[in-house]
Design a protein around this nucleic acid. Structure first.
Length: 198
DNA sequence: AACGTCGACAACCGCCTCCGA
DNA sequence: CTCGGAGGCGGTTGTCGACGT
């Protein structure tokens, strides 16, 4: 994560977690100049990051319309339906979920739904094999509601259903955990940006 | 109270596609 | 028509925090 002790400034490329300063620089720059060619944007903004890294950070985290927080049951259902239709076309799926990013959906799928699918499958195998022939690999051929039933109990445990109501009240997202401690939220960054002016 | 394990999320990497020179 | 650069996408990995033992 450390910078290389290198003399030439154009070789120096930062990796790893973004700092608050970097976020602010990126937000400010895009607010003033808009998105453009990411490589030159990174250079012009003075960020020692690759264009790709800047793009990813902006799209997945800093964009003002990015909605963060728990995926609602409705969104889960939609994700599963679309995934059954298109498979791992995360960006395509993300287009149908306003405020959600492909990365977020992808992570959600891998960490939660896939796990519950495995559990459901092993349960099915023990209990008497699949109920409707869900044997295809990866690109689900099962109906969405079937899966909901398979994983919803655990989902409720991990806070899916319970947080639906708190989800939207704040508009973008409620920045629940951050402000008290030293962690900053995107909201903070944007308000700082506004304070700074253009 | 300490240690180990698991889950969630952010970020990076490599490949593919598209566009302009 | 070909080549190179940039953007986009999906897969994978690393890190951090929460939870259980």
């Amino acid at each position: 994560m450390d910078k290389k002790p290198c003399n030439s400034q154009d070789v120096e490329v930062r990796k790893g977690p973004w700092t608050m300063e970097e976020d602010l620089i990126l937000i400010n720059y895009i607010a003033n100049h808009g998105e453009g060619v990411w490589n030159s944007l990174a250079r012009s903004a003075g960020l020692k990051r690759t264009g790709k890294s800047c793009r990813l950070r902006w799209l997945n985290y800093l964009r003002p319309d990015v909605r963060r927080g728990n995926i609602t049951p409705e969104e889960q259902l939609l994700i599963m339906e679309l995934h059954a239709k298109w498979g791992n076309r995360w960006s395509k799926i993300a287009k149908h979920l306003p405020g959600r990013t492909d990365n977020e959906i992808k992570n959600f799928w891998r960490t939660r739904i896939q796990k519950h699918m495995k559990q459901a499958e092993s349960t099915n195998q023990m209990g008497g094999m699949s109920s409707d022939g869900c044997t295809s690999n990866g690109t689900a051929s099962v109906t969405a509601d079937h899966r909901v039933q398979a994983y919803s109990p655990t989902a409720a445990n991990s806070g899916f259903a319970g947080n639906v109501e708190t989800e939207f009240h704040g508009g973008i997202f409620p920045a629940t955990e951050s402000n008290d401690n030293m962690i900053w939220s995107v909201d903070d960054l944007w308000s700082m940006h506004l304070l700074n002016g253009d």
